[in-house]
Design a protein around this nucleic acid. Structure first.
Lengths: 349, 349
DNA sequence: CTGAAAGCGCTTACAG
DNA sequence: CTGAAAGCGCTTACAG
């Protein structure tokens, strides 16, 4: 209140009658400070409304207290995916506790993606989170070139991501295969034989993992595993691929979708063709969006706990920044959420 | 390549045979630099792989080149709202061009919200974007207390947001009323009389604006404007409120929802009760989510161009940071997207 | 058109 | 338990 400008550590030190170093140590705890001195410092800081300048701290300590996240998807697809907001909320919970922040970019081209990481590497973040890992993903190499610490989230440790020298990036593994196996098992148990899968885009590791799990599960049950058709996670593809499947003779009695949006679009299309859900057709989604639980009937889906995943990813990154070498953490698998969209198949004609 | 550590402006200056000042000016353009010198500087920088440290730049120039966005909603609701990802993408487009970044927080309590803004104010951002303005919103006062420049996005300039001294925050106005009027007009034209509205939570200015527009439009057409029922933007409320409306005798022949998710949940419920869309019931949403266009039938909705809104908001904030005083920018209103979910009402019984 | 130097507000060895 | 001082890597008056 004495000055119209923002207080600095010097103002606090002067008012408390100590050195700037002592003020700094009182807050960081990196050196013991006597109780009385601490009190005076905190009081001075409070009455001056002082908080340390993050810019100055960043320059002096070479730590930005910020991590970066670059999402490389079309905005429409992000908005259809309940994963991101929950994931980010999970990240934030851990970051806020550590007094850190999240720098976010949404990009659509590889060029913009590289530009974003490059800007991040210019002293903007301490490390980054790599999502949506692709087969042969170029980002691990880019991270190394930029000297940017990173942790990746992937359904399995993808072999092509091993770096040149054999070192691997820290990773959080969140597998999806088990849930797909469970879904197929439930449908088989209910009596289904012709089960189809609408997959995600094959360049994503998580999409091919779900697809491979579907094929494996069908094979295990000695059913035809070839009813797989490629979607791209959009509502448009859910609608179009479902139309193709429903045109087949005989048509599938159940469809396992790689995400909820495609499933909801498919469900709507099936209904518009006069099919009853689940009497004529069973459907399952993936991601457990808020909408799925409140459709009529509800959409059976898979909850992936994105908030826990986000929290774990950030914790892993912070450990890696702290010097822990290449930890690989596995988070608990997703769980199936059973709702009214599945039932026994219709009686054969 | 000569050193294993990151190059600094000093390294570049030495290699190019100039002073650090000249390197700085060659990049900022704030002082003329001869063409030959520029070339040598850029070459030196490139061969050293130098980019200016953002931390140092921030400290020296008192500009963080970062803006902040705090979203105070439950993650489930964010994920149901196609607005945010597109809005953020729109922000990014402008920010990236300016070499700036976006710091994002997702919070659920007022306490965490305040904490987030407080951290931002500690030299983390140059300014913030205020979304989801509420009646009597406390944030303008908070921004002033923290000395944090801000721009707000609101459907109208809300009077309670005038600051104490009569100064107002810069604002971007994106009104929704016109589109609601249009929707009601379309339904009336098709022959509907009993039209209901499922609103958003009344503390939001944008929710009450849509609601008020509905009431006004109904009154204009000399129809009963009282069929308004309060939702909260979640699928659950869309389902529950629709159930209540369908239980009324006589029941409404058309429902105008304040967002798409509620409309989709409502549509699904109506169908599960054996109602045909649009023969028995017409429905409209708001936001134009990717899903809406690919349901069968499609959901008539309102496109709000969130990307343009985001870009405009950022431009307005950057102008304000540049010294322009309290600009108020109006962005083009949203447009109705007509799809199969509306038609003539069923013949009276 | 260019340079030498102060300064941004912290952190952290060094010294006591 | 505490202080004086150097240093983080830039930007920007001041001077020529």
């Amino acid at each position: 209140m004495t000055s119209s400008h923002r207080a600095t550590i010097g103002d606090v030190a002067r008012r408390a009658g100590v050195s700037k170093a002592t003020v700094s140590f009182a807050y960081s705890g990196k050196r013991p400070v006597s109780e009385g001195t601490r009190q005076r410092i905190f009081e001075s800081a409070e009455s001056l409304g002082w908080t340390a300048s993050e810019s100055a701290r960043a320059l002096a300590s070479s730590r930005t207290a910020t991590i970066g996240l670059v999402i490389a998807r079309r905005p429409e697809i992000i908005s259809a995916d309940p994963f991101f907001p929950r994931f980010i909320a999970g990240c934030e919970a851990v970051l806020a506790e550590a007094g850190m922040g999240l720098l976010l970019s949404v990009v659509t081209t590889e060029e913009d993606e590289t530009a974003a990481y490059t800007r991040y590497a210019a002293g903007r973040v301490d490390g980054v989170i790599l999502l949506d890992i692709k087969h042969g993903d170029r980002r691990p190499a880019l991270m190394r070139a930029l000297g940017l610490p990173a942790v990746m989230l992937a359904p399995t440790r993808p072999e092509p991501l091993l770096e040149d020298d054999g070192m691997t990036l820290p990773a959080v593994i969140a597998e999806n295969a088990t849930a797909i196996h469970e879904l197929v098992g439930l449908l088989v148990e209910a009596g289904h034989h012709r089960i189809a899968h609408v997959s995600g885009p094959p360049h994503y590791v998580h999409a091919t993992e779900r697809r491979a799990a579907f094929t494996a599960a069908m094979t295990e049950h000695e059913l035809d595993p070839s009813l797989v058709i490629e979607g791209d996670f959009t509502a448009a593809s859910g609608q179009a691929r479902t139309a193709e499947l429903l045109d087949q003779v005989p048509r599938p009695t159940a469809i396992v979708y790689a995400n909820d949006v495609m499933a909801v679009a498919g469900l709507s299309l099936a209904r518009s063709r006069g099919l009853r859900i689940p009497e004529d057709l069973s459907l399952t989604g993936f991601d457990d969006s808020d909408l799925s639980g409140h459709l009529s009937p509800g959409l059976t889906s898979v909850s992936t706990r994105p908030d826990e995943v986000g929290a774990t990813v950030v914790r892993t990154l912070l450990e890696a920044l702290g010097g822990a070498s290449g930890p690989v953490v596995r988070v608990e698998g997703p769980t199936v959420v059973l709702r009214g969209s599945i039932g026994p198949p219709p009686p054969p004609v």
